[in-house]
Simulated assay, not measured.
Amino acid sequence: MITAIYEFDFSVITASFSGALCFIINARCFNKKKKRVAFFISFSMGFIGADVSLDIINSLVPAINTEERTLGAFVCSALIITVFLRMKSLVDGALTKNKRIKWFCYVNVRVRINKNYKPHLNGC
């Protein structure tokens, strides 16, 4: 991981930056301060996790089988916060075992668990 930090590949940095921008543009559930933090986390994780996400992409879609780190950086930076929030909500739901209604905020997608719940008008 330390070698990944010292290998400055500007195409990976650009792909990570554009993936973070795509996430922030489509994210509706954050205020301005949280968007800045989410952008920084998404950008840095896209740069650091490019190799891991590229390995996952190559294992899920064997027809692609590429060695371009830019694809991994873009996908990682665009999806890392969405995946983390989904995992967090699953863990919270498994630990609490409560029948409360929880809204999961994705990139412009809201999923309700309970069908009898009427949503509030204030968003996420």
Rank of each mutant, 00 (worst) to 15 (best):
I2N: 07
I2A: 05
I5C: 13
Y6G: 09
E7R: 01
F8A: 13
F8W: 14
S11N: 10
V12N: 02
I13H: 06
I13W: 12
T14M: 11
T14P: 05
T14W: 14
A15C: 03
S18T: 11
G19N: 03
L21A: 06
I25F: 12
I25C: 00
N26E: 08
N26M: 09
C29P: 03
F30I: 02
K32Q: 13
K32S: 15
K33T: 12
K34L: 10
K34F: 13
K35Y: 02
R36W: 10
R36F: 15
F40G: 13
I41Y: 09
S42L: 00
S44W: 02
S44T: 15
S44H: 10
G46Q: 02
G49V: 01
A50N: 12
A50E: 02
A50G: 14
A50S: 11
S53N: 02
L54W: 00
D55E: 07
D55W: 04
I56Q: 00
I56F: 10
S59P: 00
L60S: 10
A63R: 04
I64L: 09
T66L: 11
E68L: 06
T70V: 11
L71S: 05
L71A: 02
G72V: 08
A73G: 04
F74M: 00
C76Q: 10
T82Q: 14
V83C: 03
L85G: 07
L85R: 11
L85C: 02
M87N: 08
M87F: 13
L90A: 03
L90N: 09
V91R: 14
D92S: 13
D92Y: 12
D92W: 08
G93W: 01
A94R: 03
T96I: 12
N98D: 08
R100G: 08
I101H: 12
I101V: 14
K102E: 10
Y106R: 02
R110T: 09
R112L: 11
R112T: 06
I113L: 07
N114H: 10
N116L: 14
Y117M: 01
K118A: 07
K118D: 13
P119N: 07
L121T: 06
N122C: 04
G123V: 09
G123A: 15
G123W: 14
